[in-house]
Write a protein that binds this DNA or RNA. Structure first.
Lengths: 385, 385
DNA sequence: CGTCCACGGAGAAACGTATCTCCGACCTTC
DNA sequence: GAAGGTCGGAGATACGTTTCTCCGTGGACG
């Protein structure tokens, strides 16, 4: 409103069309300096409330919106977190396909939003020029395959990376995973107690950590209790193959009297296969599968499921990542501000810190020879860090 | 390798620690100017191949990664597209909850990636400071409610906005939707031909376009053929309410002999309700619901579904948006480069251009009094834009 | 022998913000 | 009455690109 001589410098002469108002325009209109505008809007500096509110008013009137790009360049923070999802074929695969990942992604999105960050979906098959063109403060990677080039590259660029699923060979800042070993052991014990004499496994052919750890735990258990392993593996991304594998498993001469299926659709598939072979569940066959879907509460009979608690995982992963982003000054490596557990500070040497989260076994009729009980608490994993 | 005197100016004196290599460092190391490095790496300018490859080599050796923030600031392009999802409670709702949105989001992600863009998930409940802090080239908005403040704000900022679902009062650059009117009419005709005398509707209480247009089409049809409307509405985001509403609908004194359910879970709910009332499907009750899920191929009996073809929608939305982003120079309003249908150019006046996409009715046993036929082609909507 | 053009490339000005440094004026205090 | 402290704010610089402008140098050509 006041005088406020032209502070725009050369800009005034040049194109002065419909461009969005910049901080300079606000400064000029309010009759103050750029510094003052910046301070007033960001709540910094020492300014009397009167000036502060006046500047804000002017900014509002001009419809001023700070340039995110400029701010990012200046501060080195974009407020963006990558969500790396594996792809199958052309499509981002795990993203919405499995209830687990969908839930996890939703929880991660919420958690990030709550702390002022947004998520960028970053398919693993992304062209290098796409994601290298995005200013990321950090990345969440879901179930990284061994030697994921994207993760390696990001990590080397100094971008913090936190993975859902214990990483194979990728260097990561931190990781979060369920205690798959404890979960599988818990299920096998549960089935044994329910009377199972020979427990089979429906597993996958891929090399991701979940499949590998779960299968190994199963095999170790078999070895320990002296049962011959009975399992079928199939490519988990192929829904049709799951039904076939379930059928194969029940068609074996050494047919199991209880089966644990590692993947979400296995419950339905196994149930259908059991019907085809005239097997009653749970009388002739005990069934458990790993799933986040609640359809298994209403199947006939309801099926016992193992929940990996994806929301908890998603939230934890994002919080760890943001802690890493905000806690460590990228340049000096010193903690700034926030309280910050020292274990995340392991810079380079030693394995990245991991967090194991408990699972939950939801017991239903399919694994109970008698009347089913209600939800039961999971076997707590050995108190890992 | 060569001499290449210190071109860093003041930087050399200051902090020279572990900072990532910048374009200046590459220039110095290659003994050329910044301009040359930029041109060499971006394939611009006139440079002999020898220089180009040498510069690239040096850049590679130094592990040079251009700063996305700086590039965005300079070029005004971030390569980022917002994906606005509605929220229910704390969580991003439609994002992964419904098969339609999940499929649509996946297709959109792929399409964007294919054209060099990445998607940022932007819950509608986002704090203003979060998404206003992100440099977006454009935004896809899923099913915008009337007067969506986020959309309005974005549009006013000059960010192109394309919506999935015909927008109510929001100003958008363009929109894509199914021809819900034609779809509903097609279903009602289909049911009539199958012998239905009184067709009921299971609909929602929310005001989104899909619900509104579908319900209106139903009411108009009732009016035209002289049938008394028979419908129940419930809050679509509440799964439990759906089952209750299905029950209510079949408990009415004027019980319909055919029902169309607008939402994905309606098929299961209606089937369960029918069982409770001892109604046989399709003999006593014809059933159709709108769903992208293939579980309805295996229910007992299989249920006829209307598919909205979400992948096609997602792809189209993104392509329209990117066309708008790349086709129009933000400053001059003139088309640059790409071929670009003139209809997107309507700047400000007139309604935004919309595209109607056909749906597909997948006929199964639940709507066929006799033996079911296989998939049937949809009634093509009246050839719109 | 003078001109012009293509070639290869350098310089410097933006892009719009945050922030560090510094400065004047006023007020207090001895 | 001078010294020091606080308040309120201005100036300038840096963030790391892209790109516009311009310049010297040869060779071709008239």
């Amino acid at each position: 409103m006041t005088a406020a001589a032209n502070q725009n410098g050369r800009r005034a002469t040049a194109s002065r069309r419909l461009e969005r108002a910049g901080i300079r325009d606000v400064a000029a209109a309010a009759g103050v300096s750029i510094t003052t505008v910046s301070d007033a809007l960001n709540g910094k500096g020492r300014l009397p409330d009167e000036t502060r509110s006046r500047v804000r008013e002017v900014a509002e009137r001009l419809g001023y919106r700070p340039s995110a790009a400029a701010r990012t360049l200046r501060t080195g923070r974009s407020g963006l977190i990558g969500l790396t999802v594996t792809t199958y074929g052309e499509e981002p695969f795990t993203f919405t396909e499995f209830a687990y990942f969908a839930e996890m992604a939703r929880a991660a999105t919420s958690a990030a939003l709550g702390r002022g960050y947004a998520l960028v979906v970053l398919p693993a098959s992304s062209r290098h020029d796409v994601w290298s063109n995005i200013a990321l403060d950090g990345t969440v990677v879901i179930d990284p395959p061994d030697q994921d080039p994207l993760v390696t590259e990001l990590y080397r660029s100094g971008v913090p990376v936190v993975s859902d699923g214990k990483p194979g060979n990728c260097p990561v800042t931190a990781w979060v995973d369920n205690d798959h070993e404890a979960a599988v052991l818990g299920i096998l014990e549960h089935l044994s107690e329910a009377g199972a004499r020979r427990i089979g496994l429906l597993t996958g052919t891929s090399t991701d950590t979940y499949t590998r750890l779960s299968t190994e735990a199963y095999l170790a258990w078999c070895d320990r209790v002296g049962q011959e392993p009975v399992y079928e593996a199939y490519p988990a991304h192929d829904p049709a193959a799951g039904a076939v594998a379930a059928d194969r498993l029940l068609a074996r001469p050494d047919r199991p009297d209880a089966v644990y299926g590692l993947f979400d659709p296995n419950g339905t598939d196994l149930l259908a296969a059991a019907r085809r072979y005239g097997l009653r569940v749970p009388d002739d066959l005990l069934l458990v599968c790993c799933s986040e879907s609640d359809v298994y509460a209403n199947t006939e009979p309801p099926i016992t499921t193992l929940s990996l608690k994806p929301r908890r995982i998603g939230t934890t992963v994002v919080n760890l990542l943001i802690d890493a982003i905000e806690g460590v000054d990228a340049d000096t490596g010193t903690a700034t501000g926030r309280l910050f557990p020292p274990r995340y500070r392991t810079a380079g040497t030693g394995p990245p810190p991991g967090t194991l989260m408990p699972t939950e076994l939801i017991v239903r009729a399919s694994s109970q020879p008698r009347a089913p009980r209600t939800t039961v608490s999971p076997p707590r994993p050995p108190g890992e860090v």
